[in-house]
Simulated assay, not measured.
Amino acid sequence: MSTPSHVPGFFMTQKLTLMVNRYEIRAIGADGQPGDLLAFAEQKRMTFKEQVTFYADLAKTQPVFSFKARQKLDLGAEYDVFDERGEAIGYFRKDFKASLLRSTFHLNGPYVNAVGQERSKAIAIIRRFVDFPFTFHFDFLDGENLVMSVDRQFSLRDRYTVHVPYQGLDFRLAAAMAVGLDALMGR
């Protein structure tokens, strides 16, 4: 499978198991439902979230991209995103200070320099005090331009719809950021 450079929208689902977090990235089908598998990753539970590798198939035979922390145990860690050959294609980071009240991330790549924040300030604050699977929405803007939006669905399982209107954002960078949102927000 060849990894597409731009995908205008996809679904990301996290499935919790006893030993691993499983992430599936699926295309949005013609019927609006999850379609073909675009990428799959597993991350061991109870480990630091330093590296995640994505594969083209559930058997994990063909790596397609990955992300890795530049440093360990840093609240503002930066995560480099690599292609299947290990070449950097961009990075993202959580802005720890800005995230105290409203989660904020920076997403950078060859054609994008975006800041993503939770759309609702009220939900952002409530989520800090109530352990409930709220829906939430992130908008990533490069200046005034919407680059990507991530919408968490109301569900006990973590399910997200990701829209990428900006054609300059590489699918692999968008998918890594979506999984990073889930992992770094402790979902």
Rank of each mutant, 00 (worst) to 15 (best):
T3H: 03
P4A: 09
P4N: 10
S5I: 09
S5V: 10
S5C: 00
S5Q: 10
V7K: 13
V7C: 12
P8F: 04
M12H: 01
M12R: 05
T13P: 00
K15M: 06
L16C: 04
T17F: 05
M19E: 13
M19I: 11
N21F: 14
R22L: 06
E24S: 15
E24M: 12
I25P: 07
I28E: 13
G29P: 09
G29L: 08
A30Q: 14
A30G: 05
A30E: 15
L37M: 12
L38G: 14
L38A: 13
A39K: 11
A39T: 12
A39M: 08
A41D: 04
A41N: 07
E42C: 04
K44M: 08
M46Q: 03
M46W: 08
F48N: 11
K49T: 09
F54S: 15
Y55F: 14
A56D: 13
A56I: 01
D57M: 09
A59R: 11
T61A: 04
Q62F: 02
P63W: 02
S66D: 09
S66R: 08
K68I: 03
A69S: 14
A69K: 12
R70K: 14
Q71I: 05
K72C: 00
K72S: 11
K72Q: 12
L73V: 01
D74T: 06
G76R: 08
A77S: 14
E78W: 06
Y79R: 06
Y79F: 15
D80A: 11
F82Y: 15
A88E: 13
A88W: 00
A88C: 00
G90C: 03
F92C: 07
F92R: 05
R93F: 01
S99N: 08
T104Y: 06
H106R: 03
H106M: 01
H106C: 00
L107G: 06
A114N: 10
V115K: 14
G116F: 04
S120E: 13
A122Y: 03
I123C: 00
I123G: 00
R127Y: 02
F129A: 10
F129V: 15
V130H: 13
D131R: 13
D131I: 05
D131T: 05
D131A: 10
F132D: 03
P133H: 13
F134C: 06
F138E: 07
D139A: 11
D139P: 04
D139E: 15
L141S: 04
L141N: 10
D142N: 13
D142F: 01
D142I: 05
G143W: 07
E144C: 00
E144A: 08
N145C: 00
L146V: 11
L146A: 04
V147R: 10
V150A: 14
D151P: 04
Q153L: 08
F154Y: 09
F154W: 12
L156I: 13
R157Q: 14
R157S: 15
R159H: 08
H163A: 11
Q167W: 00
Q167K: 05
D170A: 05
F171I: 10
F171L: 10
R172W: 00
L173P: 13
L173F: 07
A174K: 11
M177S: 08
V179Y: 01
V179H: 03
G180F: 07
L181S: 10
R187M: 01
R187D: 04
R187Y: 06
